[in-house]
C-alpha cells in the first residue's frame, strides 16, 4: 500500500543519495593527475598553447580556482540544470550526449533484466520440484559456472562464436558490433526496429547468461526451504491439485526473495551492461563512460554517474512497490 508519507520519505532519500553521489563523483575523477584543459587544447590546436589560452579554457571548463571553488561552481550549475560541456566531445553538452545514449542502455538493461528474471524464475520452479535429482544438480552446476564467468569475456566468446564461427554466406549469423546497421534510416520504421533487435541479440544474450543463474539459484534454494514449511505440509494434506500447490503455495512465496535480489542485482547488471557496451561498440551510456574515463572527461563522468545513481534509486523504488504488491505483509510506510 502506497502512502503519501512513504513517497515523501522516499523522495527525501533520493535527494540525500544524489547529494552524496554527486559529491563523490565530483571529487573522485579530479584526483586523477593531469590537466584536462591542456589535453583539450593539445587535441584541438596542436602543441602551441599560450598561458592566456590555457586560462581561458580552464575558466570555460570550470577548472580554474581551488577544488572547492570548482565544486561550488559545479553545484550551482547543476541546480540550474546545467551538466556542463564534455571535454572530449567538445563542444557537445553533457546533457545532449546522455539524452542520446540513455535510451540505448535502458533498452539493453531493461530487456536483459526482464528476460533474466523470467528465465531464472521459470527454471527454478521447474527444478524446485525435482530437488536433489539429476536435473537439479545439472542445472545448478551450469548456473554456478555461468555466474562465475566475467561478463566481458563471455561477450568476446559469443562475438567469436556468432560473428566468426557460425557463418552464413560469408557473413556472421549475428552482428557483433554497433546498435544498428548504417543502411537503415533512424526512426520509428520497421527496418530500423528490426535492425536494432538484430544487433542487440548477442549483447542481451550475454547479459542474460550472466544474470539469470543468480535468480534461478536463489529461488531454487528458497523453494528447498519453503517445501518444509508448515503451510506446504498443510497444502499437501488438503489434497490440492499439484499445479495449485506449486503455483499458489510454493512459487508465490519463493519469488519474494527474488524481488529483493532484483533490486540488489540491478547495480551489478548496470556494471555488466557498461562493459558489454564497450565490447560490442554499442553507443550507450557505458560506452561513453568508458571513453570519458580514459580521456579524463570530468563533466561527462559526473553526468553519467548522476544518471546511474538516479536509475538505481528509481529501480529500487519500483521494486519496493512491486514487493508490496507481491507480499501482503509488507506495508510501505
Amino acid at each position: 500500500m502506497l502512502t503519501l508519507r512513504y513517497v515523501r520519505r522516499r523522495v527525501l532519500y533520493l535527494v540525500l543519495t544524489l547529494f552524496v553521489a554527486i559529491s563523490i563523483n565530483f571529487f573522485l575523477p579530479r584526483l586523477i593527475p593531469g590537466n584536462p584543459a591542456i589535453t583539450v587544447l593539445l587535441t584541438r590546436y596542436g602543441n602551441h598553447i599560450t598561458p592566456q589560452e590555457l586560462r581561458l579554457v580552464e575558466s570555460q571548463l570550470n577548472l580554474s580556482g581551488t577544488l572547492w571553488q570548482q565544486y561550488v561552481g559545479y553545484m550551482v550549475a547543476l541546480f540550474h540544470g546545467n551538466l556542463g560541456v564534455s571535454f572530449y566531445f567538445y563542444p557537445a553538452s553533457v546533457s545532449s550526449i546522455i539524452a542520446g545514449a540513455l535510451p540505448w542502455t535502458l533498452f539493453l538493461l531493461g530487456s536483459a533484466t526482464v528476460i533474466s528474471v523470467i528465465l531464472g524464475v521459470s527454471i527454478a520452479s521447474f527444478i524446485g520440484w525435482r530437488l536433489g535429482g539429476k536435473t537439479d544438480s545439472m542445472v545448478s552446476t551450469i548456473s554456478i559456472s555461468l555466474q562465475s564467468l566475467p561478463v566481458f569475456w563471455l561477450g568476446l566468446i559469443l562475438q567469436i562464436v556468432f560473428g566468426l564461427m557460425v557463418v552464413i554466406n560469408g557473413v556472421g549469423l549475428f552482428p557483433v558490433a554497433h546498435a544498428f546497421s548504417t543502411n537503415v534510416t533512424v526512426g520509428p520504421n520497421l527496418a530500423f526496429i528490426a535492425s536494432v533487435l538484430y544487433h542487440s541479440a548477442i549483447p542481451i544474450l550475454t547479459l542474460v547468461l550472466i544474470s539469470f543463474p543468480g535468480f534461478a539459484l536463489l529461488m531454487r534454494n528458497t523453494i528447498s526451504t519453503i517445501i518444509n514449511e508448515d503451510y506446504v505440509m498443510m497444502a499437501r494434506a488438503k489434497g490440492l491439485k499439484t499445479w495449485r500447490l506449486k503455483k499458489m503455495y510454493i512459487n508465490k512465496n519463493a519469488r519474494l526473495p527474488v524481488a529483493t535480489s532484483v533490486a540488489l542485482a540491478f547495480g551489478n547488471i548496470v556494471g555488466g551492461a557498461f562493459l558489454i557496451e564497450e565490447v560490442f561498440s554499442y553507443k550507450g551510456i557505458g560506452w561513453y563512460l568508458y571513453t570519458a574515463v580514459t580521456t579524463s572527461d570530468f563533466p561527462l563522468i559526473d553526468g553519467i554517474f548522476l544518471v546511474i545513481t538516479i536509475t538505481v534509486v528509481i529501480a529500487n523504488f519500483i521494486v519496493d512497490l512491486l514487493y508490496s504488491f507481491l507480499d501482503p505483509r509488507v506495508m510501505l510506510e
Binding site: 508448515d230 498443510m234 499458489m248 508465490k252 512465496n253 507480499d327 505483509r329
Partner: peptide
Amino acid sequence: YRWKEVAMIFQGSMNSLNPVMKVEDQIIDV
C-alpha cells in the same frame, strides 16, 4: 481422499496458513 474424508488441524497451526493468500481463498481452493 485427503481432506475430503480425513482432515487435520496441525500442530504448528500458527504457520499452517499460506502468508500470501487471503483466508477465503485458502478455504475456496481446497
